[in-house]
């Protein structure tokens, strides 16, 4: 048999308080660049990045959300359909860490049940202003059974790793699901279903997992 290559599209979401660096993390990952000017995200934006995992090319569509409190009701409606969610806090901002619990509740209420989660403590380059010890991040991650790492979009620490690990977790899950179901058709249907949930964006979300 010829080798099968599935090309996959994963939809990921970045959430967390305003100013923790969600947009910078995305910008670092997609464009390998960093901008010190803070421009608050007012809306929902996404970028594309293709990565390779276990010989499969995976297209990541990463959605960046507005973190401001006043937009929370609206942004939660974008959770559905996400296959992975990055919860980001700022290690120099205690409040943003304390709110992680709130963001986790938000995910429970609005996201797919089987969504893969990861907690990121961003701005770890600013150790002098640290308000949240790494152990606290480890603890909350352990408590919820979620992966955790500290990152720095500015110094490009753990950014690629975070996305790769999240994508890998999703990939492992999908391949488990595939092997338990009867075949490729099922996998396609399921992924299609999962990716298509943002009805506003069908055209860009339709393509998924082609088996050739």
């Amino acid at each position: 048999m010829a080798k099968k290559t599935y090309d996959l599209l994963f939809k990921l979401l970045l959430i967390g308080d305003s100013g923790v660096g969600k947009t910078c993390i995305l910008f670092r990952f997609s464009d390998d660049a960093f901008n010190t000017t803070f421009i608050s995200t007012i809306g929902i934006d996404f970028k594309i990045k293709t990565i390779e995992l276990k010989g499969k090319k995976i297209k990541l569509q990463i959605w960046d959300t507005a973190g401001q409190e006043r937009f929370h009701t609206i942004t939660t409606s974008y959770y559905r359909g996400a296959m992975g969610i990055m919860l980001v806090y700022d290690i120099t901002n205690l409040k943003s860490f304390e709110n992680i619990a709130k963001w986790l509740r938000n995910i429970d209420e609005h996201a797919n049940e089987d969504v893969e989660k990861m907690i990121l403590g961003n701005k770890c380059d600013m150790d002098d202003n640290r308000q949240v010890q790494k152990e606290r991040g480890d603890a909350i991650a352990l408590e919820h059974g979620i992966k955790f790492m500290e990152t720095s979009a500015k110094n490009n620490i753990n950014i690629d790793r975070a996305f790769h690990e999240l994508a890998e977790a999703i990939l492992n899950k999908t391949s488990r699901e595939t092997s338990s179901s009867s075949g490729v058709g099922n996998m396609n249907a399921e992924l299609q279903d999962r990716v298509n949930l943002n009805t506003n964006n069908k055209s860009s979300m339709n393509r998924i997992s082609q088996c050739c």
Partner: peptide, 16 residues
């Protein structure tokens, strides 16, 4: 009110 300005195949912008 918060308006959602949607760009087809693209992002959404919030306008308060």
């Amino acid at each position: 009110d918060i308006l959602v300005l949607h760009l087809e195949s693209g992002k959404d912008i919030f306008i308060t």
